[in-house]
């Protein structure tokens, strides 16, 4: 697993509201009990960690179009790659 994935999953794990010792890339954010305000805090924590801006509008059905943990990891990886380029 990439360092980005490890860091993102560590951040997500701090926010989840269900009793779960490990989370996987396939876990759905909704199943982890992340409600809208938690998701906003999650996005902020990730932005702070990587010093990036994740374009998210809370009016969208899935916040930022993120359904699973993998979606978040991939978005962060893409933003970091674009930043380097």
């Amino acid at each position: 697993m990439s360092d980005v994935a490890t860091d993102v999953m560590a951040i997500i794990k701090k926010k989840i509201r269900v009793d779960k010792s490990e989370i996987t890339l396939d876990d759905k954010l909704r199943d982890l009990g992340l409600e809208s305000l938690d998701a906003l805090e999650l996005v902020f924590d990730i932005e702070e960690k990587f010093n990036i801006e994740i374009p998210v509008n809370a009016n969208e059905a899935n916040i930022g179009g993120f359904e699973t943990v993998r979606d978040v990891v991939q978005a962060v990886e893409k933003i970091l790659a674009d930043k380097k380029a």
Binding site: L40, V43, F44, V56, N57, A58, N59, I63
Partner: peptide, 20 residues
């Protein structure tokens, strides 16, 4: 901005494709 509830351009109450 941090609440992420603002529309980027216009306010479209009750409309399809409203963005905040």
């Amino acid at each position: 901005e941090a609440m992420r509830v603002m529309s980027p351009d216009k306010v479209r109450p009750f409309s399809k494709d409203r963005k905040g």
